[in-house]
Design a protein around this nucleic acid. Structure first.
Length: 487
RNA sequence: GGUCUCGUGGCCGAGUGGCUAGGCAGCGGUCUGCAAAACCGUGUACAGCGGUUCGAAUCCGCUCGAGACCUCCA
């Protein structure tokens, strides 16, 4: 079975075929760096990290581009708006690029903690002003945009005569027209549906660049069009982002690309769903967002305690990327325990004894795992199959199931591939101590064994309880005691 | 108001015309000095009302409820 991906454009799953047999180009909308990264930012980062990892596992050479938006998004409407970055800078008395730098680093730290691989290219809007200006010039030349008072607007009605506007979000121009809210200062536009691809900068606007139309800044959606075509070509394989970007952002991107290059930017449009909290979308503007750092430290009213980055990752992966996932302490704690079970089994795999034959069909498990991923990256199904593997691992350890040496190798390979390489999970706990710690623990456990031999349960229990307070869990097995750090 | 999505057992969350994922919690058991862990067993859930069908949680219609987008948002 080959990889199928749900394409927002067609609203169905399609067999994934890259434009070039061996290479895949993927562009994902990154963050606007004017605030701390929150749980909502983790979703696309993780979703497309999985896509990136799996495509590479399948043998594709992937170029993954994720932008940093550090200019161009307006706070309000086009006319009276103020650049988000500039507003924050003014409020904090900082240089705009200082704000950008700070929050870019914060974003990187949080996303790295979630074990997301770095994109191959992470372009910034402010570093591609020239490319954006060139794009505006081309669209003007193609007569699908017009200039008014130093601003340039895409002429959506004219565009719609040649290309269908609204095909990604499933709307037609009439509906869009009817439902466009009346904003102030629309008089520069021929039609309310037109959108700015270049905006004249007001005198107080500090992020500004010279252009053929005077001092200004690029329109809301232009950076992604300019940067994706620069690094991936005018048409590339996958464009990703959050569902909330479908309209107008991605719709505008499609329009800009067609207006400029006479082609759609991407073959596949992938959109991750939202994370909700009490059933409502978690969003900065809604005031219910929880920063990733707050999750890691537990420092938030909604959080009963801290949660490790890997718990967040597992929590998100337990839902399919196109479904909403509802945040709660209870759900997070369930994820934490589930992941611990999975990772413990992964470690148990190392100390397992083999038999002459197997009582379990490993090939079938492997097929199921691939089938799950091939079905539009269905990580929850994959995880459910991996828990089947967990049961086998623990049963083999208990002696109620057997694995041959070959099958054990395959199972190790399977867990390495899917748990570590593709899902990108890693044990929460620190590497289990250095040599000194290990030797000390050997001594402690020896002492405890002596106590147990002497039926000195008080001493044995005391040692166990005290170690427990140090976050060390002692487990008594048939072949002696072992220990591990708790999460 | 327009467009669209969704409503699954205590919680989270897959699936989707018949074979009834998975995790967490609960209950019973095995193991253990006791624990922990693990393993075994256990829940007959799919908002409501109609319709299609031999058969629907899954298809269609209606009702109720929730949410998303239409404005920056991941």
């Amino acid at each position: 079975m080959s990889l199928q991906i749900y394409n927002t454009l067609s609203r169905k799953k399609e067999v994934f075929k890259p434009l070039h047999p061996t290479h895949v180009g993927m562009y994902v909308c990154g963050p606007t760096v004017y605030g701390d990264p929150h749980l909502g930012h983790a979703r696309p980062a993780i979703t497309f990290d999985i896509v990136f990892r799996y495509l590479q596992h399948l043998g594709f050479k992937v170029r993954y581009v994720r932008n940093i938006t550090d200019a161009g998004h307006l706070e309000n409407d086009a006319e009276v708006g103020e650049d988000k970055i500039a507003k924050k800078a003014r409020l904090e008395q900082l240089e705009p690029m200082e704000v950008v730098q700070y929050y870019t680093l914060r974003y990187h730290q949080a996303i790295e903690a979630l074990n997301c691989l770095s994109p191959n290219i992470e372009p910034r809007a402010t570093g591609h002003i020239i490319e954006q200006i060139e794009m505006v010039k081309q669209i003007l030349e193609n007569e699908l945009a017009y200039e008014t008072n130093g601003s340039v607007y895409l002429d959506v009605n004219k565009y719609n005569e040649k290309y269908p506007y609204g095909k990604l979000s499933g709307r037609n121009l009439e509906d869009t027209l009817e439902n466009t809210r009346s904003l102030d200062g629309q008089d520069e536009k021929k039609s309310p549906v037109d959108f700015a691809i270049w905006k004249k900068a007001a005198p107080e606007h500090i992020m500004r660049w010279p252009s053929p139309w005077g001092e200004g800044f690029p329109g809301w959606h232009l950076e992604c069009s300019a940067m994706s075509s620069k690094y991936l070509g005018d048409t590339f394989d996958i464009h990703g982002g959050g569902m909330d970007l479908v309209f107008p952002h991605h719709e505008a991107e499609i329009a800009q690309s067609n207006a400029c290059n006479d082609c759609d930017p991407a073959k596949f449009w992938m959109h991750n769903n939202m994370i909700t909290i009490n059933g409502k979308k978690m969003g900065k503007s809604l005031g219910n967002a929880v920063n990733l750092e707050q999750f890691f430290t537990g420092n938030h009213d909604l959080l009963e305690r801290a949660f490790a980055p890997m718990t967040i990752r597992f929590f998100i992966l337990q839902a399919h990327y196109r479904s909403t996932v509802d945040f709660s302490n209870e759900a997070l704690q369930a994820a934490e325990k589930g992941m611990a079970k999975l990772m413990n089994a992964y470690e148990t795999l190392e100390g397992i004894t083999v038999s002459d034959s197997s009582t379990y069909d490993l090939a079938e498990l492997k097929d199921k795992c691939y089938a799950a991923m091939n079905d539009d990256f269905n990580t929850p199904i994959l995880i459910s199959h991996l828990f089947d593997g967990v049961r086998i691992i623990n049963s083999v350890k208990d002696g109620t199931e057997q694995l041959s040496a070959n099958d054990l190798d395959d199972l190790k390979q399977l867990f390495q591939t899917f748990v570590i390489d593709i899902l990108g999970l890693k044990p929460n706990k620190e590497e289990a101590g250095n040599d000194l710690t290990n030797e000390l623990m050997d001594i402690v456990l020896q002492l405890r064994s002596k106590a147990k031999e002497n039926k000195d349960w008080d001493s044995a229990d005391l040692i166990r309880e005290e170690l427990n307070k140090l976050n060390i869990q002692v487990k008594d097995g048939k072949e002696g005691s072992s220990w591990q750090l708790k999460n």
